[in-house]
């Protein structure tokens, strides 16, 4: 699905990613954990194509294509989805209009016709149930006046609508209470299939009780310093990141 090799990225003069290697296959769930400032959000931003970052080295192959050559919109059209840590409010653009435009541009990219209005609305109805999103929110402006939980649910609703191959959930658990967390996680689990993959980026283990990963990677100072199964997340939760910090602080990373 996606293969990241020796990825280096900087913002200004500051190198943040310093040689990431990661291979994610269809049907897998990978969790990326790490302390604040380890480069978790930078990784998701670079993969989604945010222009603030310069990729200085390395390559990323997504479904056989060089991801880094693609524009942000083409990455999305190829099936990459980033659930934002801080979803943007866009006053005046209705959720519905936004999603219809997105869906139809993705379809056009794949040579498919526009979706009929009736089918589209049926899809909205079906998918909004998945994350228990009030139908009224669908007709409101994108994220405007939404609560933190509603914003995150709206991200997963969009993911359900666009049906991506690879979803990157960037700190989707941040700011969620336990009920909202359960709803979001249930939504993500229902969307999981043998043909798609998920990368869950999180600071805490909590989310991983609900979205159970096949692999856990610990990111520190711009590199994956440790990988393992789901038990690695529990270990991190129990011990904290201090041990990782001690272990790798001294080594020349």
């Amino acid at each position: 699905m996606i293969s990241i090799k020796n990825l280096h990225a900087s913002i200004g003069d500051k190198e943040i990613l310093r040689g990431i290697n990661l291979e994610v296959k269809a049907g897998e769930v990978h969790a990326i954990m790490g302390p604040n400032g380890s480069g978790k959000s930078t990784l998701s931003s670079v993969l989604a194509g945010r222009e603030d970052y310069d990729v200085t080295e390395g390559e990323v192959t997504f479904n056989g294509k060089n991801l880094l050559d693609l524009s942000t919109e083409d990455r999305a059209r190829e099936g990459l989805f980033l659930a934002f840590q801080y979803p943007i409010e866009i006053p005046g653009v209705s959720n519905i209009n936004f999603l219809r435009t997105a869906l139809n541009e993705i379809r056009a990219y794949h040579g498919q016709e526009e979706m009929a209005a009736k089918d589209f609305l049926a899809l909205v109805k079906e998918k909004s149930k998945l994350v228990e999103l009030d139908a009224k929110l669908a007709s409101r402006s994108v994220n405007e006046g939404f609560s933190g939980g509603e914003k995150k649910r709206n991200e997963i609703f969009q993911m359900a609508m666009l049906n991506p191959k690879l979803a990157i959930l960037d700190e989707t658990d941040s700011g969620l209470d336990i009920d909202a967390l359960r709803i979001v996680a249930t939504g993500v689990n229902k969307l999981k299939s043998k043909d798609n993959a998920t990368i869950v980026i999180t600071h805490y283990q909590r989310l991983l009780d609900y979205i159970v990963p096949d692999f856990v990677h610990i990111l520190y100072k711009g590199r994956i310093v440790k990988s393992g199964g789901k038990e690695l997340a529990l270990e991190m939760e129990a011990k904290g990141y201090d041990e990782i910090k001690r272990e790798f602080e001294s080594s020349e990373l």
């Binding site: 989604a48 194509g49 945010r50 222009e51 524009s71 942000t72 919109e73 990455r75 999305a76 059209r77 980033l82 934002f84 979803p87 943007i88 866009i90 006053p91 005046g92 653009v93 209009n97 936004f98 999603l99 435009t101 997105a102 869906l103 541009e105 993705i106 990219y109 402006s141 994108v142 969009q158 666009l162």
Partner: peptide, 23 residues
């Protein structure tokens, strides 16, 4: 930021601009 958000959902640069200006 809004432009990036729209593009990250597969909406092309031109359409994204138009959506925002219309809004």
């Amino acid at each position: 930021e809004a432009l990036f958000y729209l593009k990250a959902r597969g909406i092309g640069e031109d359409s994204a601009r138009k959506l925002l200006l219309q809004a």
